[in-house]
């Protein structure tokens, strides 16, 4: 049971409590797949898609199955997500081989993407209903994509910079992420 408005859920998930910059979810792709804007964008879109599916399935699980056995939540979520990712992969492969080629490599990775699993868990803990969960997933996905694309375009741009050897690689990415996170604090209270 949650009394949050849909708008506030959406806005909170997207910027104020951005999944990546404020909750540290989806850091693997954030670090790994943010070197090129195109790749980041694709990854983000794939994430939105899977997040929405996850939110729906998690809601069904919570409402119809896990009511009686809440302690099986973690196991059932991870299994559902793993199978979901597999199914999506197969469906996409069948329906649109072109899209599959673009997304293919990212899809299997999603199983261990904590943003996906995190969404299901947070949605449950906060007691979102179906609509709230859906909006939450879309907001979270957009926030994830925003962070990814911002990071990727920044990283593309600093390829031209004479970054000191010391800071090359993850160190600098983390500092940029920290600065982004500070900048996103400007959205605090905007709910």
């Amino acid at each position: 049971m949650s009394d949050q408005t849909l708008f506030s859920i959406f806005f909170s998930a997207m910027v104020v409590n951005n999944f990546t910059l404020a909750m540290f979810l989806g850091l693997c792709p954030f670090m790994g797949v943010s070197a090129r804007v195109e790749t980041a964008l694709r990854m983000g879109l794939a994430n939105i898609f899977v997040l929405i599916l996850t939110s729906i399935s998690a809601w069904f699980l919570n409402t119809y199955i896990l009511e009686t056995v809440p302690f099986l939540r973690i196991i059932s979520f991870i299994i559902v997500i793993a199978s979901l990712v597999q199914i999506v992969e197969m469906v996409v492969k069948k329906l649109s081989p072109a899209l599959f080629r673009q997304l293919g490599i990212f899809l299997p990775l999603m199983t261990t993407n904590c943003a996906i699993f995190g969404l299901a868990i947070f949605q449950t803990n906060r007691g979102y209903d179906f609509m709230q969960g859906l909006i939450f997933a879309i907001g979270a996905g957009l926030g994830l994509t925003l962070a990814l694309v911002l990071m990727a375009s920044i990283r593309e741009s600093i390829e031209f910079s004479d970054v000191p050897d010391l800071a090359k690689g993850t160190g600098l990415v983390l500092i940029i992420a920290g600065t982004l996170s500070m900048a996103f604090m400007g959205f605090a209270g905007l709910l």
Partner: peptide
């Protein structure tokens, strides 16, 4: 705060 997490890890790596 979250920003501190990023900055701290970044700083430790540096």
């Amino acid at each position: 705060l979250p920003a501190g997490g990023f900055l701290t890890l970044g700083f430790i790596l540096l």
